[in-house]
Design a binder for these strands. Structure first.
Lengths: 250, 250
DNA sequence: GTCGCATATTCTGTATACATCCTGCACTCA
DNA sequence: TGAGTGCAGGATGTATACAGAATATGCGAC
């Protein structure tokens, strides 16, 4: 199947959603800017019906905000909003870890997580860490978090975590690439990996409070990276999510 | 403005959403049942375009589930899902209380909360408590929780709390009316009110951990009520949300 | 020069027609 | 008898036309 067929195979609604999301995250649509449906039609090349569906979905996703009189505008976030979203994710992931620990998980279901842990170990063991390794870390890290959340065996909780993590600046890997430009890069990765190890251990030993606490702290690494990167004003291009920052805070 | 005009003034989309939500919560549409757009058109009396929007919104709300091949079905929940949703709400409200406590709130912004607390005090002081008082408690309790969440001053957090509380069985007042049929009714209300008092005190004294812990525990009252009501199988009609329970768990 | 109002344009909300895809049933062949 | 296939019916995805509302613009009056 070539690319053209692949594009054909997804619905117009999804295609519009992807195109608009890309425009927003790349900063071509600025925070606070109104998006008219006709404009969205021009951008995406599909008709108003799927465009409207895509706009509603993006509102739900948190990237757009409904205007009372009708229509949508690109949502603007403060630095505080971003930090709160990260804390929020940490809290939810902490709850997931606690559920997993308190309710107990079978040795069998813990296996994929341990394999993932080992893969991450190999990646962070490199010194210095290549950009490719950073990129691989992002993928594997996302997998680790997903597996961990699933261990909670709680559909409502997983749903909310996915929702919060969908905000581009709140996902577990949002600022990992930004780290790669920092001198402390390797150390931060090692600390994060230690958190991973601890949470698995805590779940295995059914230490709910410990599992919860370490996941909360883990999310604060992202907050720390964000602050460092903003202070240094360097390599902002590694964090496309910051296109959503209110201009006053930039 | 009479009722007919009021109905006219809201959009067809909202009207369809309300009508369908009512059908779902009243149990006339059963969990697992597919809702076709044409069927929804018949129910609501509006055309397919707004019906489709309403279906998408109900999906985000969590009442419907998208079918991979297209269309929607009424979501079914297990008792565990409901308990987890309550714990989830408690965790988020706990985070809100902690934010309020740690960041500090002005005496002025704490006033409405204290007034609300006093109003609730008056209601629970009655013995025995009338059904009208229970109903007033539900309203005032919702107001208390809303005010409390606002004190977090965190838009992303408030957004998530509202979202989770939109599930009919996860809201702070979901099972208060069910309490009214229990012999322990009064005692449970008094305990809940004590939680309210403690959280306000903790916020005032900037005791973040205490504020968080008490809000978590507070949500467990709802879980306790739910379990009691289900065990007693009595007055299930006071909890319309249970129409969403998987039939196997009924 | 500025404020207010009227008009014109543009946008959203809604309805409906059409095409494509899925689903279920019956029939046929092994 | 069971499994697979083809067809019919219906459902969803999409495009577009139309009506009403909101907004912007320009003109006139103070």
């Amino acid at each position: 199947m070539n690319e053209r067929d692949a594009e054909r195979s997804v619905s117009q609604t999804v295609r519009a959603q992807l195109a608009l999301r890309d425009m927003i995250l790349s900063g071509r649509l600025r925070p606070g800017e109104r998006i008219s449906e006709l404009q969205a039609v021009d951008i995406t090349g599909v008709s108003r019906t799927p465009v409207r569906l895509a706009l509603v979905r993006l509102e739900d996703e948190g990237l757009l905000q409904a205007i009372p009189s009708g229509g949508f505008m690109v949502k603007a976030f403060t630095e505080r909003d971003i930090l709160d979203s990260i804390e929020l994710r940490g809290t939810l992931e902490g709850l997931a870890a606690r559920f997993a620990a308190e309710r107990g998980v079978s040795a069998r279901s813990l296996e994929p997580l341990k394999e993932c842990l080992a893969d991450l170990d190999q990646l962070v063991r490199q010194d210095p860490i290549s950009v490719e390794a950073f990129s691989a870390y992002v993928t594997m890290n996302a997998r680790f978090h997903a597996l961990l959340n699933e261990l909670s065996a709680s559909a409502p909780l997983i749903r909310e975590i996915d929702r919060v993590s969908a905000l581009p600046f709140a996902s577990p890997s949002a600022f990992v690439m930004a780290q790669s430009a920092l001198p402390e890069a390797h150390q931060i990765l090692l600390i994060g990996q230690d958190h991973h190890r601890i949470v698995v251990d805590a779940i295995e030993n059914r230490e709910g409070a410990r599992a919860e606490a370490v996941m909360r702290e883990h999310s604060r690494l992202a907050a720390r990276n964000l602050r460092l990167a903003i202070r240094n004003r360097t390599h902002l291009e590694l964090m496309p999510a910051l296109a959503l920052l209110k201009s006053s805070a930039e």
